[in-house]
């Protein structure tokens, strides 16, 4: 899913390898700030991606880059302290619009964005799971089942946290008769949870 933006980022990061899970389509007019840890590194709105990439180079082993352009939310509102700790050690995250409800605003929902959001979910943070719930709420409430189907079939449970799997499986459960991909998603989720040794009862009751 590399696009020019990501190529720019990777190119500018020189020797660093960035495993990008998603990309922004609106970073050029970003209103947000970015953070490389506990509020370190505020950047002006509209910061060029190559400038971010340059500033990224101090990160020793970044593994994920998420892109952020939500105008009002702060980094800390959406990503918990534990996650920030992880960032401080090894990752750079530029976080895009998760707080703003990415699921409601994209047609169809981009499965890669979903995965990206799900990766941001932290076991200790209620506010992080609310991001997913709010997004799904918007889509399911509007009856856009086809879009949810696309997301379900495209999302890869092996790349999601258990929290994320539970959120999507249970949130979509009441609409399962309208979702052709639902059962397949739940089956794949069970397999993914079992494979990595997570609690087997995460999806209990979804029969």
């Amino acid at each position: 899913m590399l696009n020019n933006l990501q190529e720019t980022l990777v190119t500018n990061a020189n020797s660093e390898h960035y495993d990008l899970l998603g990309y922004p389509d609106a970073m050029s007019d970003s209103h947000g700030s970015w953070s490389s840890g506990y509020g370190v590194g505020q950047c002006a709105p509209g910061l060029a991606m190559n400038e971010i990439a340059t500033r990224c180079s101090w990160v020793s082993s970044p593994t994920h880059i998420l892109l952020w352009d939500h105008p009002t939310s702060s980094f800390g509102e959406s990503i918990s302290v534990r996650y920030l700790n992880d960032l401080w050690r090894s990752q750079l995250v530029v976080y895009r619009s998760i707080q703003g409800g990415i699921l409601g605003g994209m047609v169809p929902i981009d499965p890669d964005w979903l995965v990206m959001a799900y990766r941001a979910v932290d076991e200790l943070s209620l506010s992080d799971i609310e991001v997913i719930v709010d997004g799904l709420t918007k889509v399911l409430s509007s009856g856009r089942f086809a879009e949810v189907d696309i997301s379900l079939s495209g999302a890869d449970p092996s790349r999601m946290t258990a929290d994320a799997i539970v959120a999507i499986a249970h949130m979509t459960f009441p609409a399962k008769s309208n979702l052709h991909a639902w059962q397949d998603f739940v089956d794949r989720s069970r397999a993914a949870l079992t494979e990595r040794g997570d609690e087997e009862d995460h999806l209990e009751g979804l029969d």
């Binding site: 076991e123 209620l126 799971i129 719930v133 258990a162 929290d163 539970v166 959120a167 249970h170 949130m171």
Partner: peptide, 15 residues
Amino acid sequence: LTTSRCKLLAVLCAK
């Protein structure tokens, strides 16, 4: 219940 499901229910209560 798992922590994940508790969190989901907490969100539902708020809603």
